[in-house]
Computed example of a mutant assay.
Amino acid sequence: MKGITLIDYEAVIQPRRGPDGKIISGLIVADTLHQNQALILHLHKGELKERPMTGCGISDMLLDNDPIYWRTLIREQLEMDRQTVTNIKITTKSIEIDAQY
């Protein structure tokens, strides 16, 4: 899926002007799969005004020891975003997600 690219949760805006001075392009459009996954993992429920039930809040995972809960939550959230999830692996050092739109 293509969409507006974010860097540090801000839209990348690089306006280019034509010979007449008008803006002809400016937003960076690219594949947003990994960006969307990162946002879903990072957000806590209620932080996204347009979709208040979106978010895993993985910062809460730090002192938790129930990886099955987190794997289930992540899968549900990604599927709510219409991603097809093949596999989610949670280790002590990373979260590996195999999913596509």
Rank of each mutant, 00 (worst) to 15 (best):
M1L: 09
K2S: 08
K2F: 07
G3T: 08
G3F: 10
T5C: 06
Y9D: 15
Y9H: 13
A11E: 09
V12A: 10
V12Q: 14
I13W: 13
Q14D: 09
P15A: 12
P15D: 03
R16D: 03
G18D: 14
G21C: 12
I23S: 05
I24R: 14
G26I: 05
L27Q: 12
L27G: 07
I28F: 01
A30S: 15
A30P: 00
D31N: 15
T32Y: 03
Q35R: 08
N36W: 00
A38G: 04
L39P: 00
L43Q: 09
L48Q: 05
K49Q: 08
E50S: 09
E50M: 06
R51C: 02
R51K: 10
M53D: 14
M53P: 00
T54D: 04
C56M: 08
C56P: 13
I58S: 04
D60L: 14
D60W: 04
D64M: 03
D64L: 03
N65R: 02
N65K: 08
W70I: 09
W70Y: 11
L73Q: 14
R75A: 11
R75I: 12
Q77R: 15
L78M: 11
L78K: 06
Q83Y: 15
T86M: 02
T86K: 12
T86H: 14
N87E: 15
N87C: 03
I88F: 09
K89T: 15
I90N: 04
I90W: 03
T92H: 10
K93Q: 14
K93S: 12
K93L: 12
K93P: 05
S94I: 06
E96M: 06
A99K: 02
Q100L: 13
Y101R: 11
